[in-house]
Design a protein around this nucleic acid. Structure first.
Lengths: 338, 338
DNA sequence: TTTATTTTTGGGAACGTTCCCGAAAATATC
DNA sequence: GATATTTTCGGGAACGTTCCCAAAAATAAA
């Protein structure tokens, strides 16, 4: 019923081996026979059995993207980037939601391993040293690329991320060039290297401009008490409003905090950007939609996904690649800066 | 190196056939040997080869969800629902972005077929009769479930969707009970049965309440001129504001149009909900975030995904199922109604 | 033309399961 | 205890490829 390699061989008057050779673009097959085989393939509408190929090659031509949650368009965009290069290379992409639980992460990974997945792009939620160990061990069995190196520890695992340090540092520089001289920061609690990098970049930016850090201008959100970042941002605004002197510009570790802050300033009658500039980080979709629209540092998300896929595929093919790549964030100017 | 069924057989002192039997929970194997095999499996950390199983059974244990775009959290939530029941049944889920192009839809589908995908949940963007024909033909080769029956034509294909007709009808009823007597509607152009159902439900709701339709209270957005629905919503507000008399309540075919409308009313000094009530449809995440928060009809998205997965899996297993299911939408009361 | 070399091709084995069929073991019947 | 019946089990074939090795064909060298 459905054509096999034997049917094609018969049709083309050659052996299955020859058909296999043209299928895999191997050298050493005469041009005329190659053409004959190809027309036979065309005629019979033949496509090789996925399973039979797999049982021999061990390849599923599938890569997985581990994602801690679905309620975030960041991962959609990322996935899209991965899909861009995966499809172009004949791979399909599996999106795996781990529900922010490291047990789910591991169970899911096991399932993927059982299915001979060819490579994994890992957005892990668990930043613990144990998780890093687990992933390093995992990478002995299957190519692994980290999306965002959230671990504090060094690692030889390949990763792809934006340079939170320099991106934030440059944002400070930009604001300084615009005439700002006092700077605040809204930090969250999540104790991972990604957010720390951004904060360290903030400090470095200050140093670059010869500005002293003023401790009272750094607000620490307490999202463990209320995980609603927007609300936490409101509280940040309340805090800054209560100060006798306010910073001229405030940077936030993530957009949601900045958005809450902007909204609350508005309610308190503090004008943004006239009285205070605000800069977020991540460029989530809401940032463009609110009023005033948020100036923010945008990650090249799709590019991140593409690069991660490139690395994973290169590793699958045993090719050498740059394995730890850092992209620059881009400052997207909107209405909360002047 | 990696254990095969033979290793397990040897370890347990039985034949590969027996191991296969316990693996597939077949009857007719003595309890003691079953136990022996299971401990052997445990000991050797054996799991059957995905490919070898596939080559015999023809099953990938994978289902695909076709999605027209990634920039919409609706599909995320849907995917999550699908994943809920898929994982519980041993299936993995492939999310396939078709970029709103029917050629991509078909190409992607071909690729899935080549890979022996077990079933497809189809969010098609192309509502043409040709596409329906294609899908009906496709369903002879692989189980297909439509998510949202967007086609105007009748079909025997299974589908899962919310009942836009009754949900909108009930919303009108609710507003009537709240004392509203004049009703407006914001429609979009997309000529598919989903949006038409909602509009027809609106008309029926009016009839239920013995209210005459007033043509001038139906605004037709022109998203072909500008695909930004929020902006289109603003224009709707301008239109209603220009009328000598305004409806007391306006229903919108989708949230984005309603959101734009609310925002613009605010700018024009028309108070929502005091002067006009507004109800959206879909409950997108932005709806809860804007100020005033939008009252809207919420689809049980995750449930839709779960049901679609159930149907697909039942079809894969050759079991009978309810194949065309309609869920009620839920009116989520927020700040744009009183 | 003969021989050596290179290019091209064919056939068998293997990958690790499932499924069928018949044999062996266990149990029931007489 | 012998036979019939049922339960449990084992072995071979098949699924459709890829890969290796040897054979055949084509080409080059003599």
């Amino acid at each position: 019923m459905i054509a096999t390699i034997f049917d094609v061989a018969k049709e083309a008057g050659v052996s299955k081996s020859t058909v296999s050779r043209v299928l895999n673009h191997e050298p050493g097959v005469k041009e005329s026979t190659r053409a004959a085989v190809e027309t036979a393939i065309e005629k019979l509408n033949y496509s090789p059995s996925y399973f039979a190929q797999g049982i021999r090659t061990g390849k599923t031509m599938t890569i997985a993207v581990m994602v801690p949650e679905y309620t975030n368009l960041f991962y959609n965009e990322l996935f899209r980037g991965v899909e861009d290069v995966a499809l172009a290379n004949g791979y399909l992409v599996l999106m795996c939601n781990t529900e922010r639980r490291s047990t789910t992460e591991k169970d899911y990974t096991e399932e993927l391993l059982n299915r001979n997945i060819d490579g994994i792009i890992y957005n892990t939620y668990d930043a613990s040293p144990e998780m890093l160990k687990y992933l390093e061990k995992l990478s002995e069995r299957v190519p692994v690329v980290l999306m965002n190196k959230i671990f504090r520890e060094n690692t030889t695992l390949p990763y792809v991320m934006t340079d939170g340090f320099n991106s934030t540092r440059n944002a400070v520089k930009y604001l300084y060039d615009q005439g700002k001289r006092t700077f605040g920061y809204i930090q969250n609690m999540k104790n991972i290297s990604v957010t720390e990098d951004r904060y360290l970049g903030f400090l470095q930016g200050l140093k670059d401009c010869n500005i002293e850090l003023r401790e009272e201008f750094v607000y620490q959100a307490e999202e463990d008490k209320d995980p609603d970042y927007i609300k936490q941002g409101c509280m940040a605004a309340e805090y800054f409003a209560s100060l006798s002197e306010r910073p001229e510009a405030i940077l936030s570790v993530i957009d949601a905090l900045a958005i809450g802050c902007v909204q609350q300033f508005k309610k308190l009658g503090i004008n943004v950007p006239e009285e205070v500039n605000i800069v977020g980080y991540d460029n989530i979709s809401l940032s463009a939609l609110i009023n005033p629209a948020l100036t923010t540092i945008s990650q090249p998300i799709r590019k991140l996904g593409q690069k991660a896929a490139e690395i994973v595929i290169a590793k699958i093919n045993g090719q050498p690649v740059d394995e730890q790549v850092l992209y620059e964030g881009e400052l997207v100017l909107r209405d909360t800066t002047d």
